[in-house]
């Protein structure tokens, strides 16, 4: 490990330790905001792990999240909670693998369209199954898990995402993905199995979304299809990740924090206008900051450096 990496590692550990102290403030609103930010950080970072290098825009987050929540709701009486979280991760991974196998060989448009309706599709199927076979629509998830425990769980999951992202970036897989993102033809002629690489990352992001759904289930406490599968979530995640920037592991985080706060404010004051906010955010990203805030800052820094070296 280089000196710089050691320094970064120490910084990250200190930052996580400080963040873990947040519940000690006993500030209800801050904690709830912390849960939201931690949740979106996990979702947006794991989304960017897949979508950043491959340029495939996945809108499947909500589907995997909902599946994870449902795993907990269905199994809470029979299995211990930690096992359910693991199972939810597995379910998310399996769902991602199935979707990926069907669509990742094809062009990006087909993939977006397929994932666009995925949450709604799973919602329809779950509703139908519940109506016809289980009788009741909603399910209660009553546990002794408090909000601060949810926060810590999500924080741990965030640490796991960053660790995996860091490992992947230093692995053959990460290198392969950078090549695929540049030129898939070259990748194939270098001996890279691009479909398998994309699938691996998509499965990782699916597993994380599933686990997040499972961790959030006790907070929702009452789970029914329209609560668990909200396609809005998928779009929020895409916006946050792109807003921050997907070319760096910590890029999405830069988008998550301001957007979560902004979203809270708008949702509280103008609840019907969150859709408009989503629209404006998308347009802003495409037309003004296509490489995210981080990309913007980095290119500004590079330009400044060039000026200095020319002077």
């Amino acid at each position: 490990m280089t000196a710089r990496e050691t320094r970064t590692l120490i910084l990250v550990v200190v930052a996580f330790a400080l963040l873990a102290c947040l519940p000690l403030l006993r500030h209800g609103y801050l904690l709830s905001l912390g849960v939201d930010i931690a949740m979106y950080t996990v979702l947006a970072t794991s989304w960017a792990l897949f979508s950043g290098p491959t340029h495939y825009i996945s809108l499947a987050t909500a589907a995997f999240y909902g599946i994870g929540a449902y795993v907990v709701a269905a199994g809470i009486g029979t299995l211990p909670y930690p096992a359910l979280v693991a199972l939810a991760g597995l379910a998310g991974a399996v769902a991602a693998a199935l979707v990926g196998l069907a669509t990742l060989r094809l062009s990006g448009v087909y993939f977006v369209i397929f994932t666009l309706g995925l949450a709604e599709l799973v919602r329809q199927i779950v509703t139908w199954v519940q109506n016809n076979f289980t009788g009741s629509r909603g399910m209660y998830v009553l546990t002794s898990i408090t909000e601060r425990m949810i926060y810590w769980e999500l924080l741990a999951l965030a640490a796991a995402v960053f660790f995996i992202g860091w490992r992947v970036a230093r692995s053959r897989l990460g290198f392969a993905l950078r090549i695929i993102g540049n030129d898939e033809t070259v990748a194939a002629h270098l001996g890279i199995n691009s479909a398998a690489c994309k699938l691996a990352l998509f499965v990782i992001s699916g597993a994380f979304a599933g686990m997040v759904g499972a961790i959030m289930a006790p907070r929702l406490s009452y789970i029914e299809p329209s609560i668990a599968f909200t396609s809005e979530l998928s779009f929020q995640v895409v916006i946050m990740a792109l807003l921050g920037g997907v070319h760096r592991l910590w890029g999405p985080l830069v988008g998550v924090i301001p957007f979560t706060i902004l979203w809270e404010v708008i949702a509280a004051r103008f609840p019907t206008q969150t859709v408009l906010l989503l629209g404006i955010a998308f347009l802003l990203i495409v037309y003004l900051i296509p490489n995210g805030v981080v990309g913007r800052i980095e290119s500004a820094l590079r330009a400044a450096q060039r000026r200095v070296s020319h002077a």
Binding site: F235, G279, F282, V286
Partner: peptide
């Protein structure tokens, strides 16, 4: 880019 931009328009129209 067109997917993102037209998503933006779609949400803006709905709003």
């Amino acid at each position: 880019e067109t997917i993102l931009a037209t998503f933006g328009m779609s949400f803006a129209f709905v709003g």
